[in-house]
Amino acid sequence: MSADISSKLNRLLSSQPLGVVLCSSWLVENGYSLDLQQRYKKSQRFESIGAGALIRYGDHVDYLGGVNAMQTQLGLSLHPGGKTALGLQGKAHYLELAPKHVQLFGAHGEHVPLWFKKQDWSVNVKYMLSNFLPAEIGLTEIPHKQFTVKVSEPARAIMECLYLAPKSQSLLEAYELMEGLNNLRPASVQKLLEACNSIKVKRLFLYLAEKANHDWMQYLDLSSVNLGSGKRAIVASGVYIPKYQITVPKELESME
């Protein structure tokens, strides 16, 4: 390997942390041609984990290393959300030491790379692509290994849970999650409620927060939040909540 190629390799190794995927297209954009990438693979400096993706040879990369690459190199809004984001921030009502299921949320129309979809991350990854919330708000960065990953803040994460309810997310569990969110920032909640375009999510969020008797509720200005009109039957048969015009499971309404 020539001195110039070796120097470029050293710059790459020093600029990118261990544990992340390197996207081939991003490498090309930064001066590492496909031919050069092949040389690095032949010299066992890098190895392929699918078409268009490399990792350092022998490196252990988990799904968050893939998410980091999609966020920082490909510019995707895909991020851990819902229960996954709450768990990563210690906000789940029970914490799995080794989660088996992961929820990734992103903007409608985004394409998840095949290398990420086909890779065995040792977890079952579920994708939800939607525009019910703007892609750029309600996110925070958390440290992982030697890098950071954008995930949903708790307020956005519980809204993502409610977006999946009741088909893919139990409302009873959503309430248990909401009970633990007693220190949400009112300004962040306000911004999310105003930007959210799902009437169901907003009504359920306010109902559960009120039921949990959270103090931060008193600082919200609901006059600027569009809660729509008309009734919403969240479940086929249940208890009607006049204030929010929603029908919720009887078991949920009876929970203390």
Rank of each mutant, 00 (worst) to 15 (best):
A51C: 00
K167H: 06
I55W: 06
E210R: 15
C161T: 10
K83T: 12
S25W: 08
N68D: 03
L192G: 07
L54C: 03
L129V: 02
N197M: 05
K191D: 11
N183G: 02
Q103W: 13
H144D: 10
L97I: 08
L12N: 04
Q190V: 07
D221E: 02
D62C: 05
K202W: 14
F105E: 10
R11A: 05
N182P: 00
G109A: 09
R11I: 06
N131A: 10
Y240G: 00
K167A: 07
E160I: 14
H111W: 08
K191Y: 09
A98F: 15
K150L: 14
S130W: 13
S122L: 06
V201C: 08
S6P: 00
R185E: 14
I158C: 10
L181M: 04
A195C: 08
E141Y: 08
L133G: 01
M217W: 00
R232M: 14
E160S: 13
C161L: 09
Q119F: 00
S6D: 02
R185Q: 14
L18T: 11
L97E: 05
A107L: 13
H108P: 04
F132G: 13
Q71N: 10
I199G: 00
V20M: 02
V67K: 00
P113D: 02
V102Y: 03
Q38I: 05
Q245Y: 12
L74I: 04
E141D: 13
K211M: 10
T140R: 09
C23S: 07
S7L: 13
S237I: 14
Q37M: 07
K145T: 09
A155C: 12
E96F: 15
K250E: 12
L206R: 09
Q103S: 08
S6H: 01
D4W: 12
S2Q: 12
L184P: 08
S198N: 15
H108R: 15
Y219C: 07
V235I: 06
C23V: 04
L172K: 05
N226L: 12
V225F: 01
S25C: 07
V28T: 08
E179T: 12
H111C: 09
A107C: 07
L129R: 15
S168R: 11
L88D: 11
T84L: 02
K126V: 00
K211T: 04
G75M: 05
Q71M: 08
L184R: 06
Q37Y: 06
A174W: 11
F46Y: 10
K191A: 13
L252P: 01
V151W: 07
S188R: 11
S14C: 13
G180Y: 04
V112R: 03
L78D: 01
E210K: 13
L27R: 01
Y219S: 14
E96L: 12
Y163E: 09
K100V: 07
G65L: 04
S224P: 12
K118P: 02
E251Q: 08
V239M: 00
G228N: 07
S229E: 15
F147G: 06
A209S: 15
E194Y: 12
A85G: 03
A3G: 01
Y163W: 13
E179M: 15
V61T: 04
I55C: 03
M255K: 15
I142Q: 06
S224I: 14
H93I: 05
S25R: 09
N226R: 14
E153I: 05
